[in-house]
Amino acid sequence: KLATQLLVDLAEGCHTHHFNSLLDIIEKVMARSLSPPPELEERDVAAYSASLEDVKTAVLGLLVILQTKLYTLPASHATRVYEMLVSHIQLHYKHSYTLPIASSIRLQAFDFLLLLRADSLHRLGLPNKDGVVRFSPYCVCDYMEPERGSEKKTSGPLSPPTGPPGPAPAGPAVRLGSVPYSLLFRVLLQCLKQESDWKVLKLVLGRLPESLRYKVLIFTSPCSVDQLCSALCSMLSGPKTLERLRGAPEGFSRTDLHLAVVPVLTALISYHNYLDKTKQREMVYCLEQGLIHRCASQCVVALSICSVEMPDIIIKALPVLVVKLTHISATASMAVPLLEFLSTLARLPHLYRNFAAEQYASVFAISLPYTNPSKFNQYIVCLAHHVIAMWFIRCRLPFRKDFVPFITKGLRSNVLLSFDDTPEKDSFRARSTSLNERPKSLRIARPPKQGLNNSPPVKEFKESSAAEAFRCRSISVSEHVVRSRIQTSLTSASLGSADENSVAQADDSLKN
């Protein structure tokens, strides 16, 4: 292990032709098999893994070397290190390495390699500790012929580059190093199909959405987006994914797998022009299946994007999809995704031109529960009313008269009656009930004795009459309010007539 670390330190600071010789020695160290011998017992696995620490030291050392060589000349050094790393990870899946030390190597290698970024000039870069990406002036992410390196360097940008540029090249004859992302992409596909350690798979799935944002990485080298989509959909639809995973937390289920895969599918929607129609349908189907899991909100957001990006695919699945959405409970976490999906859909009339009455009724059935102001915040309630109004205007004229009683009944049950079921009123009724029952229970537990009763009969009569009056008032709060309003209006009217009579009498006395 110490000798391997010494080789790594020497290679990191070497800029001459001896660098390749040092890498040859490190490569021989990495070539050791990580498969346990067949006769190895389970209690000896930890000791055997400790004997392979030099392999881990070599791989982690290459990660440090690549981070240094990416910004220094010659660029061919970075290319050689990158290829060695990718080849080593491929061996893991070729020979099915399952030892804990092998999983640790893959975890740290993917953690580093999935941080690679590219700008519009195809320059590769890595983020620093502050998250700012520094791009290399010597390494690009696409394949290029050595003699055409300078031509590639002087080509115009596709868009303004992001991030601070690296140091300027030493001279005009500098050759750019090619670090094609397709090599890593193929290893990522192998990981999605064969990885057995949940920690490694979770890391890859968590980092892929951010990497897919940099389309330069994908399009400048032959990366098959179709295969990526197929691998992701197979993970969700195939039963073998959960069987092969180990190291998963207790209670791990298909729902947890959906939570990890759906963000990658959402990021892949922007590549729909490069996906086969069959793959697009598979993607939409997987998102529909996710509606029954805890990732339902993410799936609804993804389907909203699909309705804009892939209208030809979503239009066929939309009638059944809208009916499925009615089975989702009206909760605060689902309110905004569902209502925004319906609001977006209302502005795309070509998608729902074939809707029948059942689909329009489903839209109103989804939106009406969110009009309850005692359960949802003001934004959700306003958005629900907006969706109902928009869809009522957009639905066909023959359907409107049939939906009017349905909508008014839903609004009455969710908006008007919600004020009668407020917690304050319920607590008031509970308190009044307890007050009504309390005197009775006290009389049963403690019967009054005439000799020891010091309270006069008049006081008892007053208290009983007050309790009886309170019971009468607490029967119905709404009736009490109505009666008080009527009494107030009658009182004001009587006072007004009394004032008029007094004024008339005063005038008569003055005349006399």
Score class of each variant (00 low, 15 high):
T98N: 12
C223Q: 03
L245G: 02
R123M: 03
V216P: 06
Q90R: 11
Y214T: 05
Y181H: 04
T68S: 11
R134W: 04
V55S: 02
S104F: 12
V200R: 00
Q90C: 11
F219K: 10
P164S: 12
R123I: 01
R213F: 05
L245Q: 02
L73H: 13
R207M: 05
T68W: 03
S96H: 10
L217V: 03
E210P: 02
I89F: 01
T154Y: 12
G238T: 14
P172L: 10
S76W: 13
Q90L: 09
R175W: 06
S221K: 02
S103P: 04
F185P: 01
V204A: 02
K129L: 09
P239Y: 11
K129V: 14
H77A: 04
Q194H: 10
L189E: 03
S120G: 07
S182C: 12
R106P: 00
P100R: 04
G61R: 01
E53N: 05
E53H: 06
R244E: 03
L201P: 00
V204R: 00
I89T: 02
G251W: 04
K69M: 01
E151L: 13
V204L: 02
L242Q: 06
G251Q: 07
T79M: 14
K193S: 12
L245F: 13
C229R: 01
Y97T: 02
G247N: 11
T98F: 07
D226W: 02
Q190Y: 07
H77I: 01
L201A: 00
K202F: 03
Q194G: 05
N128G: 09
L208H: 00
L60M: 12
L91T: 13
L232R: 00
C141P: 03
L242G: 04
Y93L: 00
I105L: 07
P100M: 03
G238Y: 09
F219P: 02
Q227S: 08
E195H: 00
E147R: 11
V225M: 11
M235A: 02
R106N: 00
P160W: 05
R80K: 08
S51D: 09
P161S: 07
S237G: 06
A248Q: 08
Y143T: 07
T241W: 07
D226Y: 02
S230F: 05
Q67N: 08
S87Q: 11
S51P: 04
P165K: 15
A78W: 02
G131Q: 05
V55L: 02
K202R: 10
Y143R: 07
E53P: 02
L228M: 08
L245E: 02
P160F: 08
T162I: 14
K129H: 10
L126M: 07
L232S: 00
Y71P: 02
A231W: 01
F135C: 03
P164C: 14
L99P: 01
C191V: 04
I89G: 00
P222R: 06
F252K: 02
L60R: 14
W198D: 00
L62F: 01
H95C: 11
G131K: 06
S182E: 04
T162W: 12
S178C: 12
C233L: 08
S76D: 11
S224A: 09
L158N: 09
L205V: 02
L212T: 01
G206N: 11
K69A: 03
K94H: 11
S150H: 11
P164N: 14
C191A: 07
K153E: 13
G125S: 03
L63P: 09
S159N: 10
R213H: 06
M235V: 05
L70R: 01
A102Y: 03
I105W: 00
H77T: 02
L176W: 11
K240I: 06
S51L: 06
S211C: 14
I65W: 01
L232Q: 00
K199G: 10
K153C: 13
D54Y: 05
S136I: 01
L236G: 01
E147W: 09
P209T: 13
T241N: 06
G238L: 07
L232Y: 00
G247T: 07
L212I: 04
C229P: 01
T68V: 12
Y82D: 01
C223R: 03
P127D: 04
Y214C: 12
L188T: 10
L52D: 01
A173C: 14
Y138N: 05
R80Y: 02
S136M: 01
T68K: 07
Y82F: 12
L70T: 02
P100S: 05
G238Q: 12
S120W: 08
G156D: 09
L158C: 14
P239V: 10
Y97D: 01
E243Y: 08
P180S: 05
G163R: 11
L189Y: 03
C139T: 05
T98G: 07
W198T: 01
L188D: 00
C233S: 04
Y97A: 02
V86C: 08
M84L: 12
E210R: 05
G238E: 12
E243S: 09
L212P: 00
T98D: 13
R186W: 04
A102R: 00
P157M: 12
E83W: 06
C229F: 04
Y93D: 00
T68I: 08
F252V: 08
F135W: 06
R244L: 05
P222F: 03
R117Q: 07
V55F: 01
P127I: 06
I101L: 07
D226R: 04
I105Q: 00
L52F: 12
S150A: 09
Q67G: 06
S234C: 07
S136T: 07
K94D: 11
T154I: 09
G61T: 00
M144C: 09
R134Q: 08
L184Y: 05
L189M: 07
H95V: 05
P164T: 13
L124N: 02
P74R: 02
S76H: 10
L99D: 06
S96G: 12
L208A: 01
R80E: 02
L245M: 11
H77K: 01
V187W: 01
Y143H: 06
T57A: 09
D130Y: 09
L63G: 12
M144Q: 08
L63Y: 03
L91Q: 13
K56V: 05
S150V: 11
E147D: 13
V132L: 09
T68M: 04
S96A: 11
V59F: 05
K202E: 08
G177A: 14
D111N: 09
C233R: 02
S196G: 11
M144K: 09
A231M: 05
G177R: 05
L70S: 02
S96T: 09
I101H: 02
S196R: 12
R117P: 01
G125M: 03
E243H: 08
L52Y: 07
L85Q: 00
E151Y: 11
Q67T: 06
S49W: 03
V140N: 05
P100F: 01
L115C: 13
Q90P: 02
S234P: 02
E83G: 07
L208S: 00
L116E: 02
V59W: 01
A173H: 08
T72I: 09
L52R: 06
Y143S: 09
G251K: 07
L203R: 07
L183F: 09
K56M: 10
V132E: 11
V59K: 01
D226Q: 05
L212K: 00
A248C: 12
R134N: 05
M84F: 02
I89A: 01
H122A: 04
S178M: 07
V140G: 05
C223L: 03
L192I: 13
G166Q: 14
A248W: 04
E243W: 05
L121A: 11
S104A: 12
A102I: 01
Y138V: 06
R80S: 03
P100C: 03
C141R: 02
V59R: 00
L62V: 04
A248M: 11
L116Q: 04
L203N: 10
R213W: 03
V200E: 01
D226M: 03
S104G: 10
G149L: 10
S51W: 02
S196K: 07
L208M: 07
L63C: 12
T154Q: 11
Q67S: 08
L115D: 10
V59I: 07
I218P: 03
V216F: 03
E243I: 07
K193T: 14
K193W: 13
M84P: 00
L205I: 03
E151I: 14
R175P: 11
L63E: 12
G61L: 00
K240E: 11
T57L: 06
I65R: 01
K129M: 10
T79V: 10
V132K: 14
P180L: 02
R246C: 09
R80P: 00
Y181V: 04
Q227G: 07
S230Q: 09
V216D: 06
V187H: 01
R244N: 09
C141V: 06
P161M: 12
M144E: 10
P249L: 03
K193R: 08
L236P: 02
R175C: 13
Q90M: 09
H92L: 00
G251H: 08
T98H: 09
L203E: 05
P209A: 13
L85C: 06
